[in-house]
C-alpha cells in the first residue's frame, strides 16, 4: 500500500496536465452547446459532428500542405494558425448552415421536434464525412501528420516532461476563450447575443435582428468547436468520423456541470470534468487493485451528469436551467 501511495504522488503532475488539456478541449466544445442553449434553449446535438468536421478540415489542410512540400517549408506557427483558421471557418459555416436548414423551420414546434432533427443531422454528418473521405482518400480513419517541433519534449520537473504540442493546445485554448470573452462582453454584437438570450421578443423590439444574431451564435459556437477539433487532432493524432460523439457528449456534460447557458460556466465545467476524468482514468485502476480500469471513465462522466441534474440542476455557477414550455 505504501508503494501505491508513492506511485499515486509520482504520477500526480502528469495526470494534472492531462486533465487540464482535456478540460480545455471540453471547455471549447462546451461553449458551442451553451451558447446555442442560451439563445434557443435547445440541445444542438449535432455540435459533436461540427467539432469533428473541424478536425477533418485540419487534417486535410495538413495533408495538402505536406503533398506540396510546404508542411516543413513554412514555419510551424504559421501552419498551425492557418489550420486553426480553416477549421474554425469550416465548422462555423457548417453550424450556420445546419441551423438554417434543420432548426430554423422548427423554431415554434413542440420541444422534442428540433432535438430529434438535431440527432438526425448528427447521424447524417457522421456518414457524410465518411462518404466524402472514402471517395476522396479511400480511408476514413485519419492520422494527423506530425510536425517535428510539436513532438519535442522538455523536462519541467523530475517526474514531468511536457511536449510542445500540449503547450500549444493549452495556449491556443486560452487565447480562444479570452477572445470569446471579449466578443461577448465588450462588443455591440456580444451585447446583442446576450440580449437575445435574455428575451427574444424584447430584443427584437429593441431593433435587434434576432435571426441574424442566432446565426451569429451558431457561427461563433461552431468556430470554437472547429478550433477544438483541430487542437484535438493535433493532441491525440487519430480521428474518425464517429470520434466526435463521445467528446461531444462529455462537453455537453461539462456545459450542464457549469450551468447551461452560462459562458464562464462552460469553461469551469469543462476544466472540472477534464480533471475528474483524467484522475478517474489513472487512479481508478490503482485504487481498486486493477478491478475497475480506465474503461470506466465514461461511466464516471455520465454519473456526474446524472448526479448534477438531480441534485444541482442549476450547475456549479448557478444559471437556472430553464424549461421551455
Amino acid at each position: 500500500m505504501c508503494m501505491d501511495v508513492a506511485l499515486l504522488v509520482r504520477i500526480f503532475p502528469e495526470v494534472l496536465l492531462d486533465g487540464i488539456i482535456l478540460g480545455f478541449m471540453y471547455a471549447l466544445i462546451a461553449l458551442g452547446y451553451t451558447m446555442v442553449y442560451g439563445v434557443l434553449e435547445f440541445i444542438n446535438f449535432a455540435h459533436s459532428e461540427i467539432f469533428i468536421v473541424g478536425a477533418f478540415v485540419g487534417v486535410e489542410i495538413l495533408l495538402g500542405l505536406k503533398s506540396v512540400g510546404l508542411l516543413d517549408g513554412l514555419p510551424w506557427p504559421i501552419v498551425l494558425v492557418l489550420v486553426l483558421i480553416a477549421g474554425m471557418a469550416a465548422s462555423g459555416l457548417l453550424a450556420v448552415t445546419v441551423e438554417r436548414i434543420a432548426y430554423r423551420p422548427l423554431r415554434n414546434a413542440p420541444r422534442l421536434i428540433p432535438l430529434i432533427s438535431a440527432i438526425g443531422i448528427s447521424f447524417f454528418l457522421q456518414d457524410l464525412i465518411r462518404l466524402v473521405e472514402s471517395l476522396w482518400r479511400n480511408a476514413f480513419n485519419m492520422v494527423y501528420p506530425t510536425i517535428d517541433v510539436l513532438n519535442l519534449r522538455f523536462e519541467l520537473t523530475e517526474t514531468l516532461d511536457v511536449s510542445v504540442k500540449s503547450l500549444v493546445v493549452i495556449v491556443g485554448a486560452v487565447l480562444m476563450l479570452w477572445a470569446l470573452h471579449l466578443i461577448v462582453n465588450r462588443t455591440k454584437v456580444g451585447t446583442a447575443i446576450r440580449a437575445v438570450a435574455e428575451d427574444q421578443a424584447a430584443a427584437s423590439l429593441m431593433g435587434i435582428d434576432v435571426n441574424r444574431i442566432i446565426s451569429l451564435t451558431f457561427l461563433i459556437g461552431g468556430a470554437m468547436g472547429g478550433a477544438a477539433g483541430v487542437l484535438f487532432g493535433v493532441q491525440y493524432g487519430l480521428i474518425n468520423p464517429y470520434s466526435g460523439f463521445i467528446p461531444g457528449l462529455k462537453a455537453f456534460t461539462a456545459a450542464v456541470l457549469g450551468g447551461i447557458g452560462n459562458i464562464p460556466g462552460a469553461m469551469v465545467g469543462g476544466l472540472v470534468l477534464g480533471l475528474l476524468e483524467a484522475f478517474a482514468a489513472s487512479y481508478l485502476s490503482l485504487l481498486t487493485g486493477g478491478a475497475f480500469g480506465a474503461e470506466y471513465k465514461d461511466i464516471f462522466a455520465f454519473s456526474v451528469l446524472i448526479l448534477i441534474l438531480i441534485f444541482r440542476p442549476k450547475g456549479l455557477l448557478g444559471e437556472v436551467v430553464r424549461e421551455r414550455a
Partner: peptide, 13 residues
C-alpha cells in the same frame, strides 16, 4: 446512419 439521419430530419421538417 445516413438513412436514419435523413429520415429523422425530413420527417421533423
Amino acid at each position: 446512419r445516413m438513412v436514419f439521419g435523413v429520415i429523422l430530419v425530413l420527417m421533423m421538417i
